[in-house]
Design a protein around this nucleic acid. Structure first.
Lengths: 152, 152
DNA sequence: CACAGTTGGTCACAAATGTAACTATCCATT
DNA sequence: AATGGATAGTTACATTTGTGACCAACTGTG
């Protein structure tokens, strides 16, 4: 038998690490707000850019349009975001956070950043080169140019 | 507004990279054999250890028992693995690859290793420290001690 | 300005995954 | 050896996700 040690295999390791980190991260926004990952991504994107179409959110947060559509609806029902028709293109809607949504965003962001900081601090001096290498890896696997991807 | 750039946020980046790598990796086993990720993980584990219970496979490949159960059934229907009752514990079954399963395994493994090698080569000298740091990260996020996790 | 092809968004359906209940067996204690 | 609790594995059900069809509105070409 040729040998491949699954636990050493890079795609497997990356997936496990990403899943574990996301799982831990859930403790940041889960308990208080009970968001799903797609909802978190939409919130984060709108917090970052103020106003955006669903299409643009999907591009920026790497989610398929149906995922965005559902997350948007969920956030709308929660009264965290509002839609208004676009003037230039009446197919699309411009989405913005409501005051309530902004409040939640402002609550979560510092916790998210603290979570990330803590993680990087635990890595110590290795964190800097790690981030650089991840950047290169992103280019190699063409993370930038993918259509409907996945989770945080 | 406080700011968090989603595209720079570590959990998000890890997820995207992992998803992209897995997606690319699919090209290794997908076209020829049309496996799912859970099936691939079971195959890889049995290829690595010859004979194993479903429970042990789940532990080693970080999958929930129902995922393992379904993947095992699929591989069994494909005639890639066989079950036999365990002597010591009649609740569990010992799973092994059939000749056909071994053949597929031996076909896929070199491609998988080549895929990984290619990825690491593209990273060049950064690949070595990356792997080390991933090891540390695995410990920090306690990848080792999780129950029913996820994908490669 | 009419028509063909494209695009933003939603919905219905299918496939995949997680959760909980259940069966059979094991193990420990009495 | 009988009972109570754990454990391996499967199944049924709920939830999430992906796929494709669809509608309305846009764009370009003639």
């Amino acid at each position: 038998m040729a040998k491949l040690q699954l636990e050493q295999f890079l795609p497997y390791r990356l997936n496990r690490i990403a899943a574990a980190v996301s799982q831990d991260f859930r403790s940041v926004y889960g308990p208080h707000h009970d968001l799903t990952i797609p909802e978190w991504r939409v919130l984060a994107t709108l917090g970052q850019f103020e106003a955006m179409s669903a299409k643009a959110i999907g591009r920026h947060s790497a989610m398929h349009k149906t995922k965005v559509s559902r997350a948007v609806r969920a956030l709308e029902e929660r009264r965290w975001l509002r839609r208004r028709p676009s003037q230039e293109d009446r197919r699309e809607e411009i989405l913005t956070l409501t005051t309530l949504g902004q409040k939640a965003y402002l609550e979560i962001v510092p916790k998210a950043l603290a979570f990330e900081r803590r993680l990087l601090e635990q890595l110590g001096p290795e964190s800097e080169p790690l981030l650089e290498t991840l950047g290169r890896l992103e280019i190699i696997v063409k993370v930038a140019t993918r259509a409907g991807d996945d989770e945080t």
